[in-house]
Each structure stands twice: as structure tokens, then as C-alpha cells.
Nucleic acid binder design. Sequence first.
DNA 1: TCATACCCGACTATTCTTGTCAACATTAGC
DNA 2: GCTAATGTTGACAAGAATAGTCGGGTATGA
Lengths: 141, 141
Amino acid sequence: MKLSTKGKYGLYAMFYLAQHAGNGPQPLKSVAEIGVPEDYLEQLLGNLRRAGLVTTVRGAQGGYQLAKEPQAITVGDIIDATEGPLSISECLSDEGSCHRAGQCKTRRVWEYLSNSINDLLQSISLQDMLEQEQFGITKES
Amino acid sequence: MKLSTKGKYGLYAMFYLAQHAGNGPQPLKSVAEIGVPEDYLEQLLGNLRRAGLVTTVRGAQGGYQLAKEPQAITVGDIIDATEGPLSISECLSDEGSCHRAGQCKTRRVWEYLSNSINDLLQSISLQDMLEQEQFGITKES
DNA sequence: TCATACCCGACTATTCTTGTCAACATTAGC
DNA sequence: GCTAATGTTGACAAGAATAGTCGGGTATGA
């Protein structure tokens, strides 16, 4: 179980935009300095735009900027937008794939895990990241 | 971010073994009745054996059984054994892939998420699953 | 010794990931 | 209006991962 680079890059990009909020639209070239291929990043920002997390200004001097305040955007929003909704098990989305009653006892586990992880992701906002220390990290590595 | 079938099938199989604990070794054929191809399941049970979660008896009347009590085996153990350790981001395992200081602020997020999810997975045992209702599910779907 | 069962490694088809590329649409500024 | 800067879109492709499949072992109870 791991995140693909889409979610990771998406968070990088959104964090970059959060850091530059208020400075006008940031062109793709600038955002790509976080270390992501431009052509690939473009796709991800497209998804983030369609999800309503960033707005764009086309043409010269255009670029990308956050569509909302940093505290109104969560890590979960970003991962949803870039990776698609996380589904621990397709049992949860596809009804009918649990063809045996015995197996369905495990379904409740997926349900519980899925809900818990979603809550977790929704509990961290870009603002929290800007402020650091805000989301429960206490132990030193 | 999703689990592969390995983790899912692994949990099915382990839950099956938990349900039949005390009835002697369960042959692969029986376990496969949960709806997993025998040849594939064999690989997964091999991983579970190497992880010390099941023991096997070879030869006629042989089969697989839990290596420990159901309360001593967690969903996290099973997923680790079948899917390999979950790594949200390779930033956490591979040092040096965070090549920019700016990006590394997001690293703490992965760290936090990773720890939280691991704790979550470790908090559910097979015994909890046998007893149902035991691992925090309260809301009706 | 034979049937039952686990053990192991190689092989493969399909899908997903991670980009790359080319053509197009929009707009600011001269 | 022209041009350069910029976002938009969809097609394409190499490589890796997933989800099995297969063929031959080895151990053991009857």
C-alpha cells in the first residue's frame, strides 16, 4: 500500500502554491522547480483545477494559484484530486464483489480502515503544513 | 492509494484459519474456498509462513494453521507479510531522495501519516475480527 | 510405494505508473 | 493585429507492478 508520485507531487505543488499565495499566479515553469517534469506536472495541476483546488489564469503572465485559503485545503483533498478516491478494497466501491458471506466479515475492517485514513488525511490542511508542528508530530525521529 | 489483492487475500486466508483454529491443519484446497486461486494463495501463505504468522505440516493430512493466538496477530502483521512494508512515500525509506529543502517539509506529513496508519493496522487483531464490533466501528453505514 | 500435501522458482498477460509529445486556445503587451 | 507567454487537451509509450499460472520438487501418513 503506497502513494504514487501523483499524490506526492500534487502535495509538493500545492504546498509551493501555498507558500506563494498572494503573489499572483505562478507559472508552470516556476512550480516545476519543486523537481517535477513540467509536462507531467501539467496533468496533475489540471486534475487539481478540475477538483476546484486551484484556479488558473491563461495567457502571458498567467499561471496557477490556490482556489481557497490554505486552511480550507486538506491533504486528503489533494490526494483525492490527484490519485482518485482512495479505495482500500474494491469491496467498498463495487457492490457484489463480496460473493461469500464469510468474507464479508473482513469488509467491515476495510470500511473502518478506509474511514479512519480518510479522517486522518482530512485532518491536515496546507495551513497546518505552513505552520509546521501543528498536526500531531511529537516524537523525534 | 489502495491495497493490492495480496493483502486482501492474505487477510481472508488468515481469518479463515482463525475460524478453524484448533481443528488441525487446513489444507490449501480448503483455504482456497474463500475464493482465491490455489496457486496464487500458495505464494501468499508462503509469505505468511516466512513471516512467522502460520505454521505448516507437510505431507498427507498436512496443511496450514495459525502460528499464534488470534489476539497476537494483527491486520498490520498480515499486510506487512503479504504486501511488504507499507511505504507511503519512498522519501521515508530512501534517504537522499528529498533533494530540496523546501520539499522536505512535506516529509513530516508522510512520516506522520505512515505512523498513524501503521498504528491503526496494528490495533486490529484477528481476535477482534472474530468477535466483531470490537475495533471501533460504531456508525451504521 | 503411493497419494496427499506443502515448497520453490520461472514464466506471462494485463494493467498501472510515469512520463513525453504535439497541436491548440487564450491573453498581455507592444 | 502580432507575437510571445502561458494554460488545455489528448494521444502515445517505456517500464514496473500486479495477478496469476505452471512445472517440477520434497516430505509424510497410510
